[in-house]
Computed example of a mutant assay.
Amino acid sequence: MNAVAADIDAGILDRMIEIRRHLHRNPELSNHEASTQRYLRQMLEGQGITDIRDVAGFGLAVDIVGTGKPSNRKVAIRADIDALPIEEESGVDFSSTNPGVMHACGHDAHASMAFAVAAHLHQSRSDFGGTVRLIFQPAEEDEPSGGKRVVEEGLLDDVDAAICVHVDPYTPSGKIAVGPGPYTLACDTFDVAVIGSAAHAAKPHEGVDALAVACSMVTELQKIVSREIDPYNPLVISVTAINGGNAYNVTAGKVTLKGTIRSGSDATRERAWRRVRAIAEGMAASHGARVEVDIHKGEPGVVNDVEMTQLIVASARACVGAGNVLNTPGWTIADDFGYYSEKRPSVYFRLGIRNEDVGSIFPLHHARFRVDEAALKVGAATLVSAATGFLSMQPENSG
């Protein structure tokens, strides 16, 4: 591991950690990453990189063009840069100074690794041919999706493939996890408004208690997964908020629910949509209430291309040894890298950061989430190896 990681200059690796800590200390929410965008531009320019452009709102893209053996190949590397609306409790010295906002999903680590890749490739561009496009993407965590905007703005139109890494607090630090096929779930959201009629809390029979109806819906919605779907067919339905009522002595006349649907196939996705709507409408009707259901289609699931997965496996083995590369199934999170994998052959791999010695044991989106920074050089080295390895491959139709 150390031998290959050392191929990236120690100064670049030190700057990578510096950048990660600065971003962690100064997190910004989706579609508000103006300071992050400005800072990353400054750091890249400090490495002598000049071909930097603003993309997808508050994102950046930079093309590193090799001057070695000629190659017409081009590969994109995606690094997301936005944070989450979470009050940090990690206890690190560089904790967030932005109240209620935290890098609790590792996007600061992703951005800093992408910086290291860009800096290293720029420094060693005579060693390879072809182009590596680094995309520092905003708004992975919220709508409007930065990944969707990247595709709409044509940033993948002229590339042959795409790669991204995500830190993984469930995998031991420094190990690489990847596998072919579906690797994250599609993500949709729903809003439900239950309309009843308010009444005196001492005379609930004179109205229709929207809160009671909504609670019944929450219970019934869970049965879609537990009783209607094959356990081997991924589906998660979670009600994540319920709001309504404002007095001790008045039953609620209107209650709203919101939640998420995560699915592993188009057929399951469509079935879940139908069943959420049918259950909400049926429960409302059975209690004499009305209901409004809005389901919002979100990002598709990431599907890992077989050949791109093999490329990551080979690259990671070269960096950390075969014993540290895990063939693992996907996970139930969603990621708008799914828009990339719809457009081009892609691979999404995970970098283990779990290390009890540094407290890196909490899940993604947790207030006490931490990253074992020692693992980041492995992620950066794997990205470098995969990108340059891809550029050196001969396309099948090259004759």
Rank of each mutant, 00 (worst) to 15 (best):
L29I: 03
D82I: 00
H103P: 10
H122M: 05
A116G: 05
T36W: 01
R73N: 03
E140C: 06
G46M: 00
R125M: 13
V117Y: 08
R41H: 01
Q42T: 12
S30H: 10
D80F: 06
G130E: 13
G66K: 00
A76M: 05
S30A: 04
D108P: 06
V62W: 12
D82V: 08
D54G: 08
G129R: 14
F136V: 07
F128Y: 04
R73C: 08
Q123A: 15
L29A: 02
A76R: 01
R53L: 02
D108E: 04
E33C: 11
N31Y: 10
S71G: 13
L121P: 03
D80K: 10
I135M: 10
Q47P: 12
G46D: 11
T131D: 11
R73G: 03
I81H: 08
Q137G: 11
D54I: 11
H107F: 06
R78E: 02
E140V: 00
Q42Y: 04
T131K: 14
I135Q: 04
D80Y: 09
E33K: 07
F136D: 02
F94K: 10
A76P: 01
G66M: 04
A109E: 01
E28H: 00
S112Y: 12
G91W: 03
Y39H: 02
R25V: 07
H122C: 04
G130T: 03
G129Q: 15
P85F: 01
V92S: 07
R73I: 07
Y39Q: 00
H110A: 09
N31R: 14
G68R: 12
I86S: 03
E28I: 01
K74E: 11
R41N: 09
H110D: 06
P27V: 07
A76T: 00
G130N: 06
N98Y: 14
H120R: 10
V92I: 09
I64D: 05
P70C: 02
E140G: 04
R41E: 09
Q137C: 14
G48F: 08
D108Y: 02
S95T: 15
G57I: 01
G57N: 04
A116H: 06
E140D: 00
N98M: 12
K69L: 13
R53V: 07
L40P: 07
M43S: 15
P99K: 08
G66R: 10
V101P: 04
G100M: 06
S96G: 02
S124T: 15
M113C: 07
T67W: 00
A34F: 14
L40F: 08
F136H: 01
L29E: 00
H103L: 01
A79H: 13
T131M: 08
N31F: 01
N26L: 11
Q37S: 10
A119N: 07
S35P: 12
N26A: 07
S95R: 15
R78T: 04
L40N: 09
R133M: 03
D108T: 08
L60R: 06
V132N: 05
G129K: 12
Y39A: 03
P138V: 03
I81F: 05
L44E: 02
F115K: 10
H32M: 14
Q47E: 14
N72H: 14
V101F: 02
P99T: 05
G129V: 15
I81V: 12
H122E: 07
N98L: 12
G48C: 10
S96Q: 07
